[in-house]
């Protein structure tokens, strides 16, 4: 059974001038436990919306989302939120560490929403996780005293501390240099395979994407599998607007926060 499965998912946004913007158009995706999947695409192709739907931060307009075979789109907000806290770990491009809190406090933060042993032993668990990402000696350091790579390690530790079953990484290396980015990806890969968590990486960095077992290209809201093994040139993945689709977005201005345009470099 798949860990998570999208079936013909669409996401539409109503623009202020009453036009409908189709961000995702029938996305179908299945990720198994322990699998690493990469999604690449240009800015404004709906990558972040896809990630938000996967992470239960946003709901699809139509289509089905199954988590271990259970449909989650019909769940209450509260249930989805609890599920998100328990089963998903997020790694963001800009780290998104909580300012003014030490590395340890940042990693402890998600455990405040856990219960039982995870809640009461949160400091020990957080310290152990920071040790695992190689920051055992920086527990009490504030984020602004850490390098970019270290901050992203803290973010990785924070994403993993509750033992999620799915890790969603949104441009995890976007703010890092190549070498540091590689180290972060090594870390993510290692931890994901250690714990059997599914890892979905969304990136525009082909080197990062190449580390995944399966690859998809998101273009104009359509998710297309890319078979690296066929010898297609890597540059072809990102491609241009597929010829069989109308250039629907050509006339759409960059509008609203939900339109993931102009944000990514």
């Amino acid at each position: 059974m798949s860990m998570l499965e999208l079936r013909d998912v669409t996401r539409d946004v109503l623009l202020p001038d009453d036009r409908v913007l189709h961000i995702l158009r029938g996305v179908t995706l299945s990720v198994a436990a322990g699998e690493h999947v990469a999604v690449v695409g240009r800015s404004g192709t709906g990558k972040s919306t896809l990630l938000n739907i996967l992470g239960l931060l946003d709901g699809p307009t139509s289509g089905e989302y199954l988590l271990e075979g259970t449909p989650v789109t019909a769940l209450s907000n509260r249930r989805r939120t609890r599920l998100r806290g328990r089963d998903f770990g997020f790694v963001f491009q800009q780290f998104q560490l909580l300012p003014g809190r030490t590395a340890l406090e940042n990693v402890t933060a998600p455990l405040l929403y856990a219960s039982g042993r995870q809640f009461w032993r949160r400091r020990d668990l957080a310290a152990a996780m920071l040790d695992r990402v190689g920051l055992g000696d920086r527990l009490d350091t504030m984020p602004d005293k850490l390098s970019g790579g270290e901050q992203q390690r803290v973010a990785v530790a924070r994403a993993l501390v509750r033992g999620p079953r799915v890790i969603l990484a949104d441009e995890p290396t976007g703010a890092l240099d190549v070498e540091t980015g590689q180290q972060i990806m090594d870390l993510l890969d290692d931890v994901a395979s250690e714990t059997g968590a599914a890892l979905v990486t969304i990136t525009h960095d082909l080197a990062v994407a190449a580390r995944a077992q399966r690859h998809y290209r998101l273009a104009e809201g359509v998710l297309v599998p890319v078979d690296v093994g066929t010898g297609a040139r890597v540059a072809d993945w990102v491609g241009d607007v597929p010829t069989h689709l109308p250039a629907a977005r050509a006339d759409v201005p960059e509008l609203g926060p939900s339109v993931p345009a102009a944000v990514q470099p």
């Binding site: 509260r78 939120t81 599920l83 909580l98 933060a109 998600p110 929403y113």
Partner: peptide
């Protein structure tokens, strides 16, 4: 707002 958003990603419910 950003911080609240991050906490939401940890599973903070509206009530919380």
């Amino acid at each position: 707002i950003r911080e609240i958003g991050i906490r939401r990603s940890f599973g903070a419910t509206s009530g919380r």
